[in-house]
Design a protein around this nucleic acid. Structure first.
Length: 254
DNA sequence: AATACTCTCAACCGCATTCTT
DNA sequence: AAAGAATGCGGTTGAGAGTAT
């Protein structure tokens, strides 16, 4: 039934849902374990990445606000390519996102510079309003401007996900999703409603996992996984970092 | 309307670090 | 204390969407 080889490439909605449930159960640390136990033919690494970059409930999506842009520029100047570190200062943003942003940002800048260089009239001093739409010409207002809409928390940026939901309606249950596309919003709602049992009983096998029957967990520690856990740690906090959860170990004896 | 080009984002890879045994 | 396993990070790539010609 289940292929042995690990899957790669884009995640399906079923995989996402499965992963969400298992993270919900075991916390977002034991990736290798989750990968095995969930029946996802993915590596732990892949699971983690998917969670961190896409499924985590605290993710903010959509365009960077001017304030965020400014922060990225400042922090990058300070720390260089320490993306994860920078990301910690930007709640809801992932290192991957920032990395991508920066890359685009730099490319634009480079292009502008090149253009300026080639076009620069002898004494032009490049008139310096190279006003790159989102470059360092940071606009002084530290917060989203009036006109600027705050992306909703789960706003996927208008990609296929949201679009599909509009047409398909709700992704109704955890393991039965037909059409391509779904919104995280829906998924989270579903999960709240129908939490676990279908997946748990199906996915967990005795092997490698030592509980006999699904734990009656309704996520007391789910808070831990919500919004800010990824971003909570400041430098100061990093040093005294310890995690308040140890979910997995509750069930794992080995 | 078709094609080419650019941009954005998700995902993989390899290396480094941390944790567990 | 050492070895192996797991996790985290940064770099890179490829596909799809959007825009310009």
């Amino acid at each position: 039934m289940i292929q042995d080889e690990t899957r790669k490439g884009p995640w399906t909605e079923q995989e996402d849902i499965l992963l969400i449930n298992f993270v919900h159960l075991f916390g977002d640390r034991r990736w290798d374990f989750i990968a095995k136990v969930s029946g996802l033919n993915r590596t732990g690494k892949s699971c983690r990445l998917r969670w961190v970059n896409y499924l985590h409930p605290g993710l903010k999506r959509g365009k960077m606000t001017p304030h965020e842009e400014k922060l990225v520029v400042e922090l990058h100047a300070k720390w260089g390519n320490r993306w994860s570190r920078i990301a910690r200062k930007l709640p809801g943003r992932t290192d991957n996102e920032i990395k991508n942003y920066w890359r685009t940002h730099m490319r634009k800048k480079a292009q502008e510079r090149k253009r300026a260089a080639t076009m620069s009239s002898p004494s032009s001093s490049s008139s310096n309003h190279s006003s790159s739409s989102h470059t360092t010409t940071v606009n002084s207002s530290p917060f989203p401007e009036a006109g600027e809409e705050q992306p909703s928390f789960y706003d996927t940026g208008g990609n296929q996900v949201a679009a599909a939901v509009a047409t398909t309606g709700k992704t109704n249950h955890l393991l039965h999703v037909g059409d391509k596309g779904y919104s995280m919003d829906d998924i989270w709602k579903d999960i709240e409603d129908t939490i676990f049992e279908p997946v748990v009983s199906e996915g967990l096998t005795e092997e490698g996992c030592n509980f006999s029957g699904p734990p009656p967990m309704v996520s007391p520690n789910w808070d831990y996984c919500t919004t800010d856990t990824l971003w909570k740690l400041d430098d100061e906090e990093e040093s005294k970092m310890f995690l308040p959860y140890d979910y997995g170990t509750l069930f794992l004896t080995g």
